[in-house]
Simulated assay, not measured.
Amino acid sequence: MASVLLTNADIDHVAGLLSLREAQSFSLLATPGVHQVLRTSSAFDVLAEGVVERRKVELGASFDLVEGVSATIFPVPGKIALYLEAREEADTGALVTDRQGEQTIGVELRLGEARVLFIPGCAAMTDALRERLAGADVVLFDGTLWRDDEMALAGVGAKTGRRMGHMSMSGAEGSMAALEGLDIGRRIYVHINNTNPVLIDGSPERVAANRAGWEIAEDGMEILL
């Protein structure tokens, strides 16, 4: 493994770094804001200096992720990680947005002529984001929830998808509707929560997603360009 590029500081995005502490050399790339979050937690000191190179990458800048793969990061609508919110904000349910644009990003990868967009977290669709996604060979997009109140319906939490900074797949304001009609080679949902019925092969939700041209990511999936 040569590089790890973080798209945000959510627990499910950074916790895996702690299993890479056995003096394994790699580059850790993130925005200055996400690097600051890691610096404030002593747990991440196990990524020893001199072994793990911590590289700051700026929004809009292109850089080599690994040999033959260049990357550009860009801000997407989102929010800071839930565990970084102040207690009073968490209790009131206030949505703490990412005002600086460094806590939630998307990644555009270029492999030769191919263009791949990776956006595992997105709170809303914008005209600028639609324009960037148009013409991509592959789009890997936030598929956390099928519907906004899914967590409450499943009895596993009170927060809505919007409160957590995620668009729903379905509905008039969902990602399927937002990206309908765009010229995209393959569109694949990733970052899918275990409450999402789209994970069930043959479910009405899976059928609807497939009919709309979406694939559902799975372990071991390979994408040929």
Rank of each mutant, 00 (worst) to 15 (best):
Q100Y: 08
F74T: 05
P197W: 02
G68T: 01
M169Y: 03
E88K: 06
D183P: 02
L117T: 07
I188R: 11
R162T: 14
A86N: 09
V198D: 03
M221R: 15
G121L: 11
G33N: 08
P204M: 03
S203H: 03
E67Y: 00
V57E: 00
I184K: 01
R130T: 04
D10Y: 10
A71W: 00
R99G: 13
I11S: 15
A217Q: 13
R110K: 14
T160M: 04
G78T: 07
D91G: 08
V96G: 07
P77K: 11
A90E: 13
A128E: 13
A152M: 11
F63I: 03
A208P: 01
A208D: 02
L84D: 03
G16Q: 06
S70A: 05
A9D: 11
V107A: 08
A152V: 09
Q100V: 09
A71C: 09
G155H: 00
S3L: 03
R147M: 06
R110M: 01
E205P: 02
I192Q: 11
L182K: 03
R39G: 12
E58M: 09
V14A: 06
N196G: 08
G143Y: 07
L199C: 08
E53Q: 14
G213K: 12
H166W: 07
E113V: 06
T104L: 02
E150Y: 01
M1N: 12
Y189H: 11
V207I: 15
S42A: 13
L59W: 00
D98H: 10
A154G: 07
G220Y: 06
D219Q: 12
A177N: 12
V207T: 14
I73W: 00
L133C: 14
L95T: 13
A81V: 06
I73Y: 01
